[in-house]
Simulated assay, not measured.
Amino acid sequence: MEKKVVIITGAAMGIGKAGVERFGRGGWTVAACDLNEQTLNETVEEMKAKGYDVKPYVLDVADYDACAKVVDDVVATEGRIDALYNNAGILGDRDGILGFDHNKVKEAFDVNVFGALNLIQLVARAMDKLGIQGSIVNTTSINAEVGTWDPIGYIGSKGAMKAITQGAAFHLGAQGIRVNAVSPGATITPMAASVYDCPPAREAVAINHNRHRWIEPEEVANAAFWLAGEESSGVNGIVVAVDDGYATGKGADLLGIFEEWEKEHPAEA
């Protein structure tokens, strides 16, 4: 049996790095893609030291031609693509409707939505040409399920990815390609750490989860690995929430918490 091959974006750190580890441990060949070359190479070397088959690809997912080159190279090198894990994402900025920066919101959509769409199309075309009934796993967010304080560009982009997941599952069903998504709750990643820089906000987010704690990147990666493999063969067009019940409750007023914190700690704002 041929070794399965997965493309993972945003692979250098956080959930993406956990995904590289999970697929590598599962015996897959991993094409690890990220824009941050130095961190990506460090991650790949770390995974190779564990005996995993991982290859680095420096990639800006918003660049369609660059995405096409990576897909072509993976097919030429490995002879197949069995799964795509669209994990790359950026926040945009921290402002809401009244104050958001249009350029930063556009950047969030370029990466989170169009970057994912670029690879969905290119990988699905490659799978169809190769006769592979593969799997595509996208990353949405609890922001696509409930109203939150988070950056409006991020919220909008994740809502779009939920709809794209469902639509792509319908469009690609005839080719035998499944499309699903993982919807992480607040997860311990470098990106989250850069935003939740206020201890009361971090605590409020933890309480919003049913067991009052943040999600680990490995928990999201485990769900993505399951969706990509044969054990989920009957699952198509759904979003798997990895949020410890966050979306079942009402979120805290984090914007108010941040504003109060910044008044009390001006030097740290």
Rank of each mutant, 00 (worst) to 15 (best):
M1K: 14
T9E: 08
G10F: 06
A12K: 06
G19T: 03
G24P: 07
L35M: 15
E46S: 15
M47T: 02
A49D: 15
D53H: 15
P56V: 01
V58G: 05
V58C: 09
D60T: 11
D63E: 04
A66Y: 10
A66C: 11
K69D: 13
K69W: 10
V70D: 05
V74D: 07
D82F: 02
A83E: 03
L84H: 01
N86V: 07
N86G: 08
N87F: 02
G89D: 04
G96K: 08
F100K: 02
F100G: 02
F100V: 09
V105K: 12
F109S: 09
D110C: 02
L117S: 11
L117P: 07
L117N: 11
N118S: 10
L119H: 06
Q121T: 13
V123W: 09
V123N: 05
M127D: 02
K129Y: 05
G131D: 08
G131L: 05
I132L: 05
Q133A: 15
G134A: 06
G134T: 03
S135D: 04
T139G: 07
T139E: 06
W149M: 11
D150T: 14
G156K: 04
G156Y: 05
S157A: 09
A160L: 05
M161Y: 09
M161S: 08
Q166L: 07
G167V: 00
A168R: 00
F170N: 15
A174I: 08
Q175W: 06
Q175K: 15
N180V: 01
A181T: 06
V182G: 01
V182L: 04
A186F: 14
Y196R: 12
D197C: 12
P199W: 08
A201N: 10
I207M: 13
I207A: 15
N208T: 10
H212L: 10
R213T: 12
I215D: 10
E219C: 08
A221C: 07
N222R: 13
A224Q: 02
A224P: 03
A228G: 09
A228T: 09
G229M: 01
S233L: 08
G234C: 11
V235M: 11
N236K: 07
G237F: 03
V240N: 09
A241Q: 15
T248E: 13
K250D: 12
A252I: 08
G256Q: 13
E260I: 07
E262R: 15
A269V: 08
